[in-house]
């Protein structure tokens, strides 16, 4: 039997070699805890994220847009399931994880506490929110924990249509009537800064993230990802003929990237604490879905038990 020093050395050398850590490998308790927290928060974000978009399924403006939105929201549900099972490989149970979400103990991405007021919001969410999520998830394909990485690879494959369908909606609106374009601008105005917050607080205020980088759970910092996102998005906004609601947005030749304003971090912390426009609604909807589904789970358990008896009797 290896001693603790050896297994720890082994773990560290795996990280150095960019090898993956697998469920049965020895890992530091804090690495495990960090992963359970991060992966389950990620899973919660996927399924809570179904709500603001689900809001528009019944009111999508065409049959085509309705089936597209349905397929996207269904994908997000699938993403939640991949991630929950990845978290379970670390010893957490599904009931425990869902319980933490339903009681408000666990967090999910603050972005989903904003309302989707118009059809243009569905465009903005697919384009910007999924765009930002993809940037984060592409990085996480190389995360050090094997099951998390594999879930991310699947998810990234599926995400590729999510952002495109959002941008397609924006294109239709921006090259449509004056009124439609205004709707698109209004959506951009409301979603820009909340999207910037998705990458998390600035590096200097994000103590967890330094450790996550050391463990290679994350491969890029919050600020690096945010910068990359802005640099890639500006041209897409210009193509639409829209304006990013930030007076300080300006190309910086020396850093070969854009300068931009930080989002209002006090708003971010306040939304995380539960004071966003939709926190209450989201949590209620999730709790209702879960308790409304209780009879299905109970019936399924009873049916499985009954069939087991039959097998024994036969």
């Amino acid at each position: 039997m290896d001693n603790v020093v050896d297994v720890e050395k082994n773990f560290n050398s795996k990280l150095e070699k960019n090898d993956f850590v697998e469920p049965k490998d020895w890992m530091p308790e804090n690495y495990r805890k960090h992963l359970i927290r991060q992966i389950s928060q990620h899973a919660h974000s996927e399924i809570i994220g179904m709500l603001p978009e689900g809001n528009w399924i019944s009111r999508a403006p065409s049959l085509r847009s309705k089936i597209v939105l349905l397929a996207k929201v269904q994908d997000e549900g699938g993403h939640g399931l991949y991630l929950y099972t990845a978290a379970e490989t670390l010893g957490a149970s599904r009931d425990e994880l869902l319980g933490a979400l339903h009681t408000g103990k666990a967090k999910y991405s603050s972005i989903f506490n904003y309302p989707t007021l118009t059809w243009a919001d569905i465009g903005a969410v697919g384009w910007l929110v999924d765009g930002a999520a993809i940037m984060n998830q592409v990085m996480l394909q190389r995360t050090s924990y094997g099951p998390y990485s594999r879930a991310m690879i699947r998810i990234c494959k599926e995400e590729s249509f999510h952002q495109r369908q959002g941008y397609e909606i924006m294109c239709r609106l921006c090259f449509g009537t004056e009124e439609q374009k205004e709707m698109a601008q209004d959506a951009l105005n409301r979603w820009w800064f909340p999207t910037m917050m998705m990458f998390g607080p600035p590096d200097k205020d994000s103590p967890n993230s330094e450790q996550a980088i050391k463990w290679r759970i994350k491969r890029e910092t919050n600020d690096e990802l945010r910068q990359k996102f802005v640099d890639r998005t500006v041209a897409q906004v210009e193509f639409l003929g829209l304006t990013i609601p930030d007076k300080n947005l300006k190309w910086n030749e020396t850093k070969k990237g854009y300068d931009f304003s930080e989002p209002d971090w006090s708003e971010f912390y306040s939304v995380i604490k539960g004071n966003g426009p939709c926190n209450k609604e989201r949590l209620e909807a999730r709790n209702k879905a879960h308790s409304d589904g209780a009879w299905v789970r109970e019936a399924a358990i009873a049916y499985a038990e009954k069939k087991k008896e039959n097998i024994l009797a036969a």
């Binding site: 699938g78 399931l81 991949y82 099972t85 379970e88 490989t89 599904r94 594999r150 879930a151 699947r154 399924a300 358990i301 049916y303 499985a304 069939k307």
Partner: peptide, 18 residues
């Protein structure tokens, strides 16, 4: 990957959907 299901039929159908 993996999933939860109560019996074989549900497991294979969930696997297809997921």
């Amino acid at each position: 990957g993996s999933l939860h299901a109560y019996d074989k039929e549900m497991a294979i159908e969930n696997a297809r959907d997921l």
